[in-house]
Design a protein around this nucleic acid. Sequence first.
DNA 1: GGGTAAACTTGAACTATTCCAGATGAGTGG
DNA 2: CCACTCATCTGGAATAGTTCAAGTTTACCC
Lengths: 150, 150
Amino acid sequence: MTSDFEAQLRRVPLRVTRPRLAVLAALHEHPHSDTETVIALVRAQHPLVSHQTVYDVLRALTDAGLVRRIQPAGAVARYESRVGDNHHHLVCRTCGAIVDVDCAVGDAPCLTASDDHGFTVDEAEVVYWGSCPACATEHHHSDPPVRRKQ
Amino acid sequence: MTSDFEAQLRRVPLRVTRPRLAVLAALHEHPHSDTETVIALVRAQHPLVSHQTVYDVLRALTDAGLVRRIQPAGAVARYESRVGDNHHHLVCRTCGAIVDVDCAVGDAPCLTASDDHGFTVDEAEVVYWGSCPACATEHHHSDPPVRRKQ
DNA sequence: GGGTAAACTTGAACTATTCCAGATGAGTGG
DNA sequence: CCACTCATCTGGAATAGTTCAAGTTTACCC
C-alpha cells in the first residue's frame, strides 16, 4: 500500500517524502477531501507537518497528475486520487457531498461541443447539481448551511 | 433598453435602483464579467456606488434569476445575463476567456447521469476546457499568466 | 559519506468576499 | 402630494482560503 504510493511518486518522478506519502494515503481513504481535511488527516500521523507543505504537496501531485483537483462553484478546492479516467461528479447543493459518476456517454461525445468557436478543447467537465438522499428527505428542517465561498 | 431592465426588476419583484439598472446594463454589454469589472463598469456612470452594493446587487439578481453566476474552477465568480436556457461554456485555460456554447444534446440527456446514486439532479453544468484561438497560436511566448485563485 | 537541488518550516501577506451598523431612498397607503 | 417603513446603499472592518518569501532540512546521485 505505502510502497504503491512510493512507486507512484518515483514514476512521476517526485521525491519520496513522508508528507507526500501521507497525503496520498489520506486521499486514497477519503476521496473528495478539502485541504483542511487533508491537513488534519496528515497530522494524525505526522503532527509537525505544516499547512504550507500540504498546499505544496497537493499542487505538486496535481501538476504531476497523481491527484485531481475538483472545485464546484462556490466551494473550496477538493482533491481525489482517482485519475486517468474521465469520470464526473454529483454535488449536493445543501451539504456539499460529492460522489463519483462514470461518464454517461463514454469518452468522445463528452469532448464534443456543439460549436467550439475555434477553441482547442482538451477536457469536458460535468457537474450534476442536486440533493443527496439525506438532504432531499429532510430539506424542511433548519438545515445547517454548508460553508460556501461564492 | 433601460426600461426593459426596469421591467425585469419589477417582475421579480425587486426595487428599481440606479445600481441595479447599471449592473444589468453592464452585464448585458459585457457578459462573463467578474465582480471587479462590473464595479468598474457601474462606476463609469455612477462613481459613488460602493463595492459592497455591487456584491449585494449581484447576489440579489442571481437569487432572483435575472443573472447567472459562473465560476470555473480556480477563477473568481463571473456573471452573465443570459438565463433561462441551459447553455454551457468554453473556458480558455491560458487567458480565462469564456464563450457560450449551446447544449450539445438538447435538454434531457444533459440531466441524465449514468447512475445518480439516489441524488435528485436539477442541473447539469458542463465546462469545456481548452485554448482559445489566440492563445493556441502563441502558446510558446511568455504568456502573461491569468490571475487565478486556486 | 558529501554535495546539491528539491522539499519543508515559519510567518507574513494577499485577495475575493462577507459582516456589520448606521444612513438613504423606493414604493405604498393615507 | 406627503409621510412611513423596510429594502437598499454606504463605509469600514473582518474573515477565510491560498500564496509568497527567506531560511533550514533532507532525499537522492555520485
